[in-house]
């Protein structure tokens, strides 16, 4: 559906995108993850035909974005980070304009717009000026704009940035819903978002792809150690000593010392060995009450940090 090959983009001497290659299959929701300035927006601007690459190719639905821009662009709906809204228009005026611009035939226009407005739930504000709408509504109008013309591919650049938690959940559910009919590329620097919505993740850092897998696959791949968080009451040094004696435990650390002698420890153990039972018995033997104990699976966050930590950020997005 979308094929990106050896994409390179220079801004002066700075390599914003460095040999990026990936494909997105039909019907897939792909997460495009990276810190701010990793090259996400640049990549998306190139694959929607807004910018041109220094080298490399982008093919949408079999059409090269530079060779057959009209056909390629017809199958893309793009929501940039800042929704491209004409603030002086009403929602319906704006969407009508977009429909004309995208060449939606006149007899289909109104019906299609009504469907889209219903889907993204902006029907009730259709006659209001966009400049008077809240950020959440504006984002939805931006999404509606991307949906006009019923493109097969949706490219969404940080669609939840600047929204409040409820709006974020709304937009995420909407994206999931849209994923049933469309192929979606979604960029984000928020990990739970990608975890919640996407079927596959491409991690980009400093312009280059750092990792690519399903969210679960990435977790497994990186699960060299598993960690336990233990909250217990007792003398810190002795607890650390005792737990260190347990076979399988590699490392123990007191992270936070709370009031009343309660401390939070982090225990790292070798892969595959669950030491929670031994920890319980050891603590019980010394009558140090366990307040809380939980296993910490490596999250995308850990993977992300691991992938990106030894590299610096600070390039254009």
């Amino acid at each position: 559906m979308i094929e990106i090959r050896n994409l390179v983009k220079y801004y002066g001497d700075i390599k914003a995108v460095d040999d990026v290659t990936f494909t997105v299959n039909r019907g897939e929701i792909l997460g495009f993850l990276g810190p701010n300035g990793a090259g996400k927006t640049t990549t998306m601007n190139i694959l929607t035909g807004f910018l041109s690459a220094t080298s490399g190719t982008v093919t949408i639905n079999g059409h090269d974005i530079l060779e057959e821009p009209q056909l390629a662009k017809k199958s893309i709906g793009y929501l940039p980070e800042n929704p491209p809204l004409y603030l002086d228009m009403t929602v319906i005026e704006y969407l009508k304009f977009v429909a004309e611009l995208k060449g939606v035939s006149a007899d289909q226009r109104l019906r299609q717009l009504a469907e889209i407005m219903k889907l993204v739930r902006i029907t009730d504000v259709s006659n209001r000026l966009i400049k008077n709408l809240s950020k959440g509504y504006r984002q939805r109008v931006g999404l509606a704009q991307a949906l006009v013309g019923n493109p097969e591919v949706l490219v969404l650049d940080e669609p939840t940035v600047g929204l409040d938690p409820k709006q974020i959940i709304d937009i995420r559910n909407l994206i999931k819903e849209l994923g049933k009919k469309h192929t979606i590329i979604l960029s984000s620097h928020i990990l739970p978002e990608v975890q919640a919505v996407c079927e596959r993740v491409v991690i980009i850092n400093r312009g280059a792809i750092a990792a690519e897998d399903t969210p679960e696959g990435l977790s497994k791949k990186m699960a060299k150690t598993s960690r336990i968080e233990l909250t217990a009451e007792g003398p810190v040094k002795e607890i650390i000593q005792k737990i260190r004696m347990i076979p399988g435990v590699e490392h123990v650390d007191a992270i936070i010392e709370k009031e009343d002698g309660i401390t939070i420890f982090e225990i790292e153990n070798k892969t595959g060995e669950d030491v929670r039972r031994q920890v319980f018995f050891e603590m019980a033997r010394s009558s140090w009450p366990i307040i809380e104990m939980k296993s910490l699976d490596p999250t995308l966050e850990d993977i992300f940090l691991q992938v990106t930590s030894n590299q610096q950020t600070g390039k254009r997005g």
Partner: peptide, 8 residues
């Protein structure tokens, strides 16, 4: 302009 120049 992003809307205009990414349209067909």
């Amino acid at each position: 302009e992003v809307l205009l120049f990414t349209s067909p």
